[in-house]
């Protein structure tokens, strides 16, 4: 019998309190408990983290690169959404 390999999991680590969990890589594990422990053993050997999320890779849905222009280019010309678009006189403070 050829047993199929353990599923792949994506690993996200919070490096310190106050920061987001950040994707750091992936690994194989038979179940979620093992995936978290493996993530601890693989990705936090040098105090890289204080919290771990794992998600089975098959459950991650991603945008299609072919849609990238339609998805992301329309935001290009909305410069007025950024504070630097506006001129504020130097004498005005706290804005």
């Amino acid at each position: 019998m050829t047993q199929s390999e353990w599923p792949l999991w994506e690993v996200f680590i919070r490096s310190k309190q106050g920061l987001d969990h950040k994707h750091v890589g992936s690994l194989h594990a038979a179940d979620a408990t093992m995936a978290i422990q493996n993530a601890r053993d693989v990705y936090t050997r040098r105090q890289e983290g204080i919290s771990i999320w794992v998600v089975e890779s098959t459950h991650v849905h991603a945008s299609n690169p072919d849609d990238a222009e339609a998805f992301f280019d329309p935001a290009n010309d909305k410069v007025y959404r950024h504070p630097t678009f506006y001129d504020v006189p130097d004498s005005i403070k706290h804005m």
Binding site: W6, H28, A29, M34, N38, D41, V42, R45
Partner: peptide, 11 residues
């Protein structure tokens, strides 16, 4: 038996 557990045992 698998790379991930090799790391665990070394830890």
């Amino acid at each position: 038996p698998v790379l991930e557990q090799d790391l665990a045992m070394a830890n």
